[in-house]
């Protein structure tokens, strides 16, 4: 019964949507203070490799690896962010783009550790570990009518959904707080924000580091869902994918990049023929969105129409 309804392929697509939503959140949170980072793919790579190497080489539990991956990405984010923030937004975009490329170069060349462009395989997978754990504790997926692989994919998806809910809750709460107001103020008018006593360097680094942590976190999860990674997974194209989530979905409200990530992950799955022309279409989407709807598909008025938010005024900050 339950087993007939669950197609592992759909579950896996669902998992990718969840991971991509985290990436969408990472670019959203940096944009929420008015900064464009093109380094998400690089931070994702740092998170993925850090966690993969720690779990492969030192047998650390996945959860420790994932947290370490996110933290290392965050620390490097701070190191990259501080010098770039001394100048205008354009420099940050270039510096982060360059950083992504440097990361890729290092991953390819540091062969003794990263196995070069072949990449790492045999990374402990969340699903398998869960299966092992449930077996050890005497639970069999068969008892609820599931095959092993159905159980594995279902559990992974469930975990990712829970993580996403927590992250979205966290970010919405943050948006409605003093920190969120400071981000929004900096985005709207940096000079005025500064004149209101906001330490713009601190808040810009904070939002940039949060973005890096989220990217690193998503990368680490990606590694432990896929089981293998290579530098190509974290190339410039990945950075463009992530940028599209926010630009297409909407960069002013959190639901925008969530929608963008889900939609853009599903699209090539649903329309197979698109996949070959994917980046041609992405390119056009970026140009057209900037010309006709720079705020993205989902914006505040649309949310109000859909009654997804209370009238914005009620709770202050947009979310």
């Amino acid at each position: 019964m339950l087993g007939d309804l669950i197609n592992p392929y759909y579950l896996q697509v669902g998992s990718f949507i969840m991971i991509n939503i985290i990436l969408g959140l990472s670019i959203y949170i940096t944009l929420s203070s008015g900064q464009l980072s093109l380094g998400s793919a690089g931070f994702m790579g740092i998170g993925a490799y850090t966690s993969a190497l720690l779990t492969i080489n030192y047998d650390l539990p996945i959860i420790v690896g994932v947290i370490a991956g996110a933290l290392v990405a965050g620390i490097i984010g701070i190191l990259i962010g501080i010098p770039s923030l001394r100048l205008t937004g354009v420099y940050l975009a270039i510096a982060t783009l360059g950083f992504g490329e440097v990361m890729r170069v290092f991953l390819v060349n540091w062969e003794s550790v990263t196995k070069g462009s072949v990449g790492l395989s045999g990374i402990p997978q969340i699903g398998r570990e869960l299966l092992k754990f449930s077996r050890d504790s005497g639970f069999s997926p068969m008892s609820i009518g599931l095959k092993n692989n159905q159980f594995v994919y279902l559990m992974v998806l469930l975990i990712l959904v829970i993580i996403n809910i927590l992250l979205i809750w966290f970010l919405i709460r943050q948006n409605k707080s003093r920190v969120g107001r400071a981000f929004a103020a900096i985005k709207m008018d940096e000079k005025a924000a500064e004149a209101m006593g906001i330490n713009i360097t601190y808040y810009k680094v904070l939002s940039f580091a949060q973005g890096a942590i989220l990217s690193g976190f998503a990368g680490a999860l990606f590694a432990h869902v896929m089981g293998y990674i290579s530098p190509a997974d974290f190339s410039y194209h990945r950075a463009v994918d992530i940028l599209i989530y926010a630009v297409f979905g909407g960069s002013e409200v959190i639901w925008g990049s969530i929608f963008g990530a889900a939609f853009m992950t599903l699209l090539p799955e649903v329309l197979r023929f698109i996949s070959e022309y994917r980046y041609l279409i992405y390119g056009l989407v970026l140009v057209l969105m900037m010309a006709f709807r720079p705020q993205g598909i989902i914006d505040v008025p649309l949310l109000q129409k859909l009654h997804l938010t209370k009238r914005r005024s009620k709770h202050g900050s947009k979310n």
Partner: peptide, 13 residues
């Protein structure tokens, strides 16, 4: 002003 914020939010900032 923070032009897209509400009046109250501006004062909160």
């Amino acid at each position: 002003l923070f032009s897209q914020m509400s009046v109250l939010e501006n004062v909160l900032v």
